[in-house]
Design a protein around this nucleic acid. Structure first.
Lengths: 112, 112
DNA sequence: CGTACATTGAACCGATCAGTTAATTAACCA
DNA sequence: TGGTTAATTAACTGATCGGTTCAATGTACG
């Protein structure tokens, strides 16, 4: 995998377990054990996922006795939003073309 | 890599070469040779990148004699935009917290 | 027909990934 | 102090990635 920041973020997001973890963290911070609970995989596996998310800057980890509460970080998600936002114009064009197409087939029988 | 659609799309985006290819295609369709031109890698390497993008639904390929023109497809990018949009609220909260914080340190000297 | 061009396929390589189990660290608690 | 709990590290595995080179395919064109 490439090591530029955006690539690291996208790679971190390319896994449903990690996205589920982010969704959980959007509701508030949680410990590793709490985050692992919904999954069938081992704890070290979850720990590795968290490390991937941390290296992508998507989460930070604090310390509270023997717990390591995780918190979601918005910045990389904004990066993603900004990147995909560059294609907004393309979305719009794409929709316009679809509309045109639908208009055309809609009026196809009008002038045979 | 997981094989659910969104994971496949994110994985495809987790490479600067592939993102550069998409950026190029946002300006209009192009052949494999044209797409490969800016890069130092071999043509088969670019061909592989294109296959990854195609399997993610990010591009489609047509046929024109011995050329295979590639076109950008908006749908998966919309998927990404929608996904990240779910965190918009979190962005806003995050900004609000930052604003609060900035306000606090800004007024720190006011009431000692 | 034969040759040149655009692209893909096949086989291979080293690196990384996602998971496992077992051992280790670190903090609490009685 | 010793035991329990939370989490990470270490070592290993099979699969996938991103790149290479060389060969094959398919199309145009003289």
């Amino acid at each position: 995998m490439a090591n530029d920041q955006l690539s690291v973020v996208f790679a971190a997001l390319a896994d449903p377990t990690r996205r589920a973890i982010l969704a959980r963290l959007a509701e508030g911070e949680a410990t590793v054990g709490e985050l692992a609970e919904p999954f069938e995989m081992s704890l070290p596996a979850v720990s590795k996922h968290l490390r991937v998310l941390e290296r992508a800057g998507l989460i930070t980890r604090g310390r509270n006795a023997q717990w390591r509460p995780c918190r979601l970080q918005a910045a990389p998600l904004r990066q993603v939003a900004d990147w995909v936002g560059n294609y907004q114009q393309f979305f719009d064009d794409s929709y316009r073309r679809l509309d045109d197409y639908l208009d055309r087939i809609r009026h196809q029988g009008d002038t045979p």
